[in-house]
């Protein structure tokens, strides 16, 4: 898994330490601590995993093992506009897969990745309870319904005015 290199500030390290302290520095609380840290920082870069491993006296390899096992955890920061495509049953049968391919193509990234300019990240989710609007796409907290591949370019432009590969073609 690729990661973004960062340098943690002292107050950020202290915040992570506080999460660990609140959990009694118990190795068994690792998943809880990772959850809270990701909530705070948005993602779990290598440097953060090292701080947690040191504090709990665990091998970093083990922390990394847990981070890579659970798909909820990510080592890549979410984009300014996180895009989630519903691939639940209803959306899937109504062409979510094709919409997803279009996003991948225009942003030139895979699911779980973030565009180079940090604007967009791509993920899949299962059912937002709006099956009547299938296929559904979420951008940040905005919901788009009945999306066709042709609408994708417009959604991206509306959200961020970002330069996509499609532009200028």
């Amino acid at each position: 898994m690729s990661s973004v290199k960062i340098e943690l500030r002292k107050d950020q390290v202290e915040k992570i330490h506080a999460f660990c302290d609140q959990c009694g520095n118990e190795p068994g609380e690792l998943i809880n601590i990772l959850h809270r840290t990701q909530e705070e920082f948005g993602y779990l870069p290598a440097e953060i995993q090292e701080v947690i491993a040191d504090k709990l006296a665990l091998p970093v390899a083990k922390v990394y093992g847990v981070v890579t096992f659970y798909s909820f955890f990510t080592m890549i920061p979410k984009g300014e506009f996180p895009i989630s495509i519903c691939t639940g049953t209803a959306c899937y049968v109504r062409g979510a897969e094709k919409v997803l391919s279009e996003f991948k193509k225009l942003l030139d990234i895979q699911v779980g990745e973030t565009s180079a300019d940090g604007k967009f990240s791509l993920s899949c989710l299962r059912c937002v309870g709006a099956c009547g609007l299938a296929p559904v796409v979420l951008v940040g907290d905005k919901t788009y319904g009945r999306i066709a591949p042709d609408d994708v370019k417009e959604i991206l432009e509306e959200a961020g005015g970002a330069r996509t590969r499609g532009q200028g073609d």
Binding site: M1, L58, A61, K62, Y64, G65, T68
Partner: peptide, 13 residues
């Protein structure tokens, strides 16, 4: 991990 406590290897992904 258990015997050597080196912690170099762990199952990932």
């Amino acid at each position: 991990n258990d015997f050597q406590t080196v912690g170099a290897l762990h199952a990932v992904n």
